[in-house]
Design a protein around this nucleic acid. Sequence first.
DNA 1: CTGTTAGCGCCTTCAT
DNA 2: ATGAAGGCGCTAACAG
Lengths: 332, 332
Amino acid sequence: MQAETPTLDDVARLAGVSANTASRVVRNKGSIAAATRERVHAAIDTLGYVPNRAAGSLASSSSMIIGVILPSLSNIVFPEVLRGIHAGLAGTPYQPMIGVTDYDLGKEQQLISSLLAWQPAAIITTGFDHTDSARRMLEGSGIRVGELMDIDGTPIDIAVGLSHRMAGKAMARRLIERGYTKVGYVGHDWTDDRRANARYLGLCEGLAEAGHTLAAEERGHDASSTRAGRAALAKLLAQDVKLDAVAFSNDDMAVGGFMHCLAGEISVPNELALMGFNGLEIGQSLPKPLSTILSNRFAIGKTAVELLLQAGRSSDPQIIDTGFSLLDGATT
Amino acid sequence: MQAETPTLDDVARLAGVSANTASRVVRNKGSIAAATRERVHAAIDTLGYVPNRAAGSLASSSSMIIGVILPSLSNIVFPEVLRGIHAGLAGTPYQPMIGVTDYDLGKEQQLISSLLAWQPAAIITTGFDHTDSARRMLEGSGIRVGELMDIDGTPIDIAVGLSHRMAGKAMARRLIERGYTKVGYVGHDWTDDRRANARYLGLCEGLAEAGHTLAAEERGHDASSTRAGRAALAKLLAQDVKLDAVAFSNDDMAVGGFMHCLAGEISVPNELALMGFNGLEIGQSLPKPLSTILSNRFAIGKTAVELLLQAGRSSDPQIIDTGFSLLDGATT
DNA sequence: CTGTTAGCGCCTTCAT
DNA sequence: ATGAAGGCGCTAACAG
């Protein structure tokens, strides 16, 4: 169907140089006479040469692959991190290779192993929780490792994210400031989602600092979703504890809660204030924009990639706080 | 930090066989004595051997990579397709390598070129629109090619998706059935989104069959989003044409429209009926579930991968219709 | 059923 | 600034 794929030798021959020189031009490495460089580039163009990455990886024992391990794709947050990663990779020859763990550390370990088989330039994963074996593989690989989303822990190499405990605390402070004291909590199943748990703990801590405690809470057994949030708020209110505000584990849940209030004609925030976490677009498009905390997902992905590609692993771990900010909204 | 990564030779030596035999065991290829197989597996376990994919790819000029090219990650639809792809790949040694085009055919072409440099087992992309060069590369590569989302066209190898024209028609029929005759349209910028355009055309076609035409339309210049939908519906209604129903380019836009109605106290569907496309979770969690058409994104991804991995490219292209279904909802 | 022999296409090291 | 030689780890023939 198509002529033989041209190799570096073909390019070299056409340009009248050695394969080695052609390789140097392609990789932009070492010093090369301007004239030769041009001849090689011309040859590349006329032949339509594309380097064989497998050969390159084998010879250099390192590839232009960035291994990316995400806990989930159902939650819009991670595609947004992935967008950031893509943005950071734009214009570079690196390609992301993706795996999804479903919040399962065993799957993460397996993915790390398969990804390392490609000798990637870096591996990006989330959080600080890994199996011992996974941690050993990452440490021993010598490649750069990014642990995303969270910064409350000790990174293997670099961590990029925000303090979820602090974010939880900020939610509490905000509610207190606005005069709410009977605060309830609605969460999804966070047995495997440490960060939601951290926000919960921060929330409690923040309330405690003001001399309050959670008045009631309801935690579903499903993943976070609008539907789950709606159902869970209904359940929480059925507990018949007098509440003036509800903090949600995230925006998906909070939007669901808002829907419940709409359907049940509960006036927000007069009768009940709602607060989310993430700052998703959907929350800001509600008839009343959701009061929430903006996490910078895109920036997390982009920043991580940029740092990871900059240089080799340094002696001691590094933490990059991408922060968070309060979105005022109209639901508190 | 860690001992030399063990190679196939190490495994072979420990198992007392030749490297080739060890390779056969690893790849589960050719017939091997049960006893040898066990010995090799034992050696693999004790050494913690993981095959070097680059070497394998180079030697076999084909890799365990599936190139996946998506137009966008901002639209939840594509992460869901990706989820399907992952599901189809689960338990296989294949890994997806991802690229995002932002609906730019030039970027698609470039991505195809970089992905082919890895000699992937297959490439998955969307739609039938490609640059000539991109098409030639895909055809000439000889590898399997999946074109996803749409089936109204001629595939290079296989197409998996649904007829967006038919889906648009189904929207029209549904509205007509319910007695709506003054139908408006709200769309996002679909200069680069052929499928939204196809649904629009199908919608017009369906209305025409019943002797009607679009009463008014409003097309934004932004990508689809809840926010854009909200704004666009406001603009449409400001045109002051008497409407009894509005069809949206997709659910994101329709949810935004719903928000506008909530905020403006427009009763849905009494004063205005709303209809979306996609069947996203958020639409079904509204106080009134959105009337919409369910596209089977997950199935599209999963089916495509399964077919692509089954065998080599056959002589003539194949079309797989994953269909769509009406979600009744309460907004029509 | 298993072993032997050659590369795959590129990069690294060492010369020049 | 460029070239020559060797090998990365694996798999594809071919033998036997």
